[in-house]
Amino acid sequence: MTLASHFSYWITLFLMVAGLFIVIARGNLIKKLVGLGIFQTSVYLLYIAPGKLIGGTAPILAEGFKVYSNPLPHVLILTAIVVGVATLALGLALVVRIREAYGSIEEDEILQRDHSYQAEDAA
């Protein structure tokens, strides 16, 4: 185990944790979705980086090439990218609706309004 042999894992890990941090720590719903996107893309690296062979080429069969990188993670991640954009679109539609109903996309303001509505309903 050396720095060079595990560097890609650690950057992947950093991106994953940074995405997690943005999702937890930031109150703005759009920023949360961007953080979720970073978390998702870090998973792409987690899958694809181990499939790489230095000196290999893309897995498109042709004369004169012997070493190909592993094609299976690529297939999995192609699916993940498309599902990721579907999640993002649905999340943003929810954000737009929340903004219409509450007039804000900040988590603490939304919670504050919820509490004031509950107090109104109780009174």
Partner: peptide, 13 residues
């Protein structure tokens, strides 16, 4: 990383 198909999808999507 030799994942050209994924790279195209990531750039577009």
């Amino acid at each position: 990383l030799d994942a050209v198909d994924v790279a195209m999808t990531e750039a577009a999507v």
